[in-house]
Write a protein that binds this DNA or RNA. Sequence first.
DNA 1: TTTCAATTGCAAGTCGATTGCATTTGAGTT
DNA 2: AACTCAAATGCAATCGACTTGCAATTGAAA
Lengths: 140, 140
Amino acid sequence: MKNIVETLKTLKLKVTPARIAILEIFSISDKPLSVEIIAKRMKDKQINQVTIYRTIESLVSAGIVGRIDLRRDAIFYELIDEHHHHHIVCTKCGLLEDFETCQIEEVSKNIILKSKKFKMIQDHSFELFGICNSCSRKNV
Amino acid sequence: MKNIVETLKTLKLKVTPARIAILEIFSISDKPLSVEIIAKRMKDKQINQVTIYRTIESLVSAGIVGRIDLRRDAIFYELIDEHHHHHIVCTKCGLLEDFETCQIEEVSKNIILKSKKFKMIQDHSFELFGICNSCSRKNV
DNA sequence: TTTCAATTGCAAGTCGATTGCATTTGAGTT
DNA sequence: AACTCAAATGCAATCGACTTGCAATTGAAA
């Protein structure tokens, strides 16, 4: 992500402390984040948790943040950047690994061509769930 | 799904009214169901909503029911049957369309071969999200 | 500097899902 | 057929992620 203020202006979103802070946190993180995690990383700044929820919602609507269901306690979010990727999640400990695949886009295209009820896809989910090597060894 | 009682016995699960009722509902439904929907379809039978939650959990653990996040209010579930499929979801009205694709299994295999932190995948999510033709026309 | 919709904080509320506990029950054992 | 006990169930209470109402504040355009 380039300059955060510029990005917000381009999107015609008001430049507010909450948006800047949250986008900063996203841009230095290489992992999807939950509202709870974001709140912890903002402890110094005085920003209400409700504001985090609403700010993220505005960023999702603006199309620069994506929502991910990792089958954990809360919803996770991450910046939608040029490196489109997906995740493998450990169902025991939550460990994440990214992977990139361009095949999903092809699959989606094929599917939409065959669909009778849909002509256009906005988004997709594709996450893998397993037990990481570390948890496997622990044999929990 | 063949005989429900036989299935439960094979899985070493007790044959209880709740399990039978829920598996019956699943087996006549061609769509994923939420706990709320299942509860409605069981109004005649006297089965507590908590029991539905716990029964579904046992069926998920036993590996015959799968959990699906359709980005709706609640989690959805459906029988894991021979026709492995995924869904396109209308983000406006929730309309569902199934699709089958064997390509996802291939993609998963390729990914796991490259992974450093995982050697085995249990499950995956793959759903498409869009606006259905009907909602498009309404231009909401 | 004026204006006003958008944003924010606070408190309260919503609602899907979970938990504790006493009771019941399925199914193996005697 | 009676015995045994872990598993399953119902009820009430609770949790916790998320949402909403409302008044106060603020970003940014006029």
